[in-house]
Every structure is written in structure tokens, then in C-alpha cells.
């Protein structure tokens, strides 16, 4: 059992929790994730390690309530327990030696990108952050991002906050203004990562994206998380989740992610309630 030490509500559907898991906190690095199971007969779902406190022994997760498991999780309160919590899984992102990096987060991806921005900043690299959202109501982590970057931007699709438009508009502008990034980190919906990767490919800037396919074990055993990278099959849970954005077959990844959409949705309707 893993205790929820703190719970924060970031916006109407995004929550954040600090979970007591000292062994994981001790080893966690940016780019890694955990797999949790809320209750008996529950699903195993992967969530990024959004932060960690080695001294307190806590691991922070930030999640969007999109389906059954994330909603069950969101209903838990401080002091409650999570049944299973495994990690740290995946390969840590290699962030050493970069001088100037643009970190881009789309929606919930802002939370996943934050530890990366923080790490690059702490290693002495210059960080520019761009985080994008659908509208003003769901903006998260603006202050945190600001604190670890020399330039930070917020975009909204409808212009209700920050700059109107997409994260790529700002990125293009920054590059064209002469910012010579040696790395771009892009984390968010697949379509956003695809568009960013297409842009940076033109400029020849190395780009890391974080893939989030459907997973079960997280140890390289089921192959459910496979993604095609440079024509080769890779398992996101053990070879990733970070990959070179210029080599990913995004179209395939988008198809595979939708595999259970209909099935689970139907079931939830069947259960009544929502």
C-alpha cells in the first residue's frame, strides 16, 4: 500500500498527488514513470514521475481524469492508499551537456515536461519553455515553468490567455529570431509532438518526444507498448518512453492509442453514472 501524502487540484480535470514510495523516490530521474493499480481487479496504468523528494520519500504524479482508473484515483484523498505503485520504469532522459533547450508542453504534457525543464536548468543549461492549452481554465504549471526558464510562454487555442495559437507558432518565431537551440523537448498529445517534430526537422534541431502508448507490465514483457522508431519496433516501457521525434511513426502510434476507446467508453456508459 502506498499512501497519498498530499493532493492538489490543478484544474477541473487535472490533479496532482505526492505518494509515499521511498524506494522509488530514491532512484527516480526525469523521464521515468511509474505504473499503479488503484484497487483489486483494477487496471495497471502508467503515469510520469512529475517530481520527487528523495528526503521525504515521495513521488509526485500529475494526472488528467480521462477514464475509469484516473477517475478512481482522483476520488482518493490525502491519507488514502493506492494498492500498487511500481517504478521507476523507463530510461531517464539524457539532459546533460545541452546549452540551450526549448521545452514544450501541451496540456497535461506541461506537467510531464516540467521535471525535464527543471533538470536542464539545474545542470546550467538555458531553458525556454512554451506550454499550450485549449483555454484559460485549464492552464497549469505556469509559475513552476517560469521559475526554471529564462523565457516562458503560454499559448491558448482560443486566445483566452497568453498568446493565441499553437506552441509551434511560438517555437518557429523563437527559432527564426535566432535562438540556436541544441535540443527541443516536446511532450503532449501525439499530434502536437508530431507537428513540433515536423518543424524542428526542417531546422535540423534534435528533438526528444515522450511516447505514451497503452501499457500493461512496463517491463518489456507484453509488447503492447510497441512503437515504430526509424523503421524498428521498440518497446516504449523499456527502450523509452523518450525517443527521437524525427524517427517516430506518429500515424501508427495515434491509431494504436485508440484501440480501447470504444470498448471502455461503452462500458462506462453501461455502468451508468456518467
Amino acid at each position: 500500500m502506498y499512501k497519498i501524502i498530499r493532493k492538489r487540484i490543478l484544474n477541473s480535470s487535472v490533479k496532482s498527488m505526492d505518494i509515499l514510495a521511498p524506494k522509488i523516490a530514491k532512484k527516480a530521474e526525469p523521464g521515468q514513470f511509474i505504473i499503479l493499480r488503484v484497487r483489486e481487479d483494477g487496471e495497471r496504468i502508467p503515469l510520469t514521475i512529475a517530481d520527487y523528494d528523495r528526503e521525504e520519500g515521495t513521488v509526485t504524479i500529475t494526472f488528467q481524469e480521462v477514464g475509469k482508473t484516473t477517475m478512481l484515483l482522483g476520488n482518493l484523498e490525502e491519507g488514502d492508499n493506492i494498492l500498487d505503485f511500481v517504478g521507476p520504469l523507463g530510461v531517464p532522459t539524457n539532459l546533460e551537456g545541452y546549452k540551450k533547450v526549448a521545452v514544450i508542453g501541451g496540456g497535461l504534457g506541461a506537467a510531464i515536461a516540467y521535471p525535464q525543464a527543471k533538470k536542464i536548468h539545474s545542470l546550467g543549461g538555458e531553458v525556454h519553455t512554451i506550454i499550450g492549452f485549449r483555454n484559460k481554465d485549464i492552464v497549469i504549471l505556469e509559475e513552476e515553468m517560469k521559475a526554471v526558464s529564462s523565457k516562458s510562454f503560454v499559448t491558448t487555442d482560443d486566445g483566452s490567455y497568453g498568446k493565441k495559437g499553437f506552441v509551434t507558432d511560438i517555437l518557429k518565431q523563437l527559432i527564426d529570431e535566432g535562438n540556436d537551440y541544441d535540443l527541443v523537448v516536446a511532450i503532449g498529445p501525439l499530434i502536437m509532438m508530431k507537428v513540433v517534430s515536423d518543424l524542428t526537422r526542417e531546422y535540423g534541431i534534435k528533438t526528444i518526444v515522450s511516447m505514451n502508448p497503452i501499457m500493461i507490465d512496463g517491463t518489456g514483457m507484453c509488447g503492447g507498448c510497441r512503437v515504430t522508431v526509424g523503421g524498428e519496433v521498440k518497446f516504449a516501457c523499456v527502450d523509452g518512453p523518450d525517443f527521437d521525434g524525427h524517427l517516430i511513426d506518429f500515424d501508427e502510434a495515434m491509431r494504436r492509442q485508440g484501440m480501447y476507446k470504444e470498448k471502455e467508453h461503452k462500458c462506462r456508459i453501461g455502468l451508468g453514472g456518467n
Binding site: 481487479d41 483494477g42 487496471e43 495497471r44 475509469k68 482508473t69 500493461i216 507490465d217 514483457m221 507484453c222 480501447y260 470498448k263 471502455e264 462500458c267 453501461g270 455502468l271
Partner: peptide, 17 residues
């Protein structure tokens, strides 16, 4: 694994499809 470990044969009583 979905069927045995995660008990997908009991879905939707269990959560894994």
C-alpha cells in the same frame, strides 16, 4: 496477461479490457 492476471474475462467487473 490481460486475461489471466488482469482478469479481463471478468470485464467490466474488472477494469482491464
Amino acid at each position: 496477461t490481460r486475461i489471466n492476471l488482469m482478469k479481463a474475462y471478468k470485464f467490466p467487473e474488472s477494469d482491464t479490457p
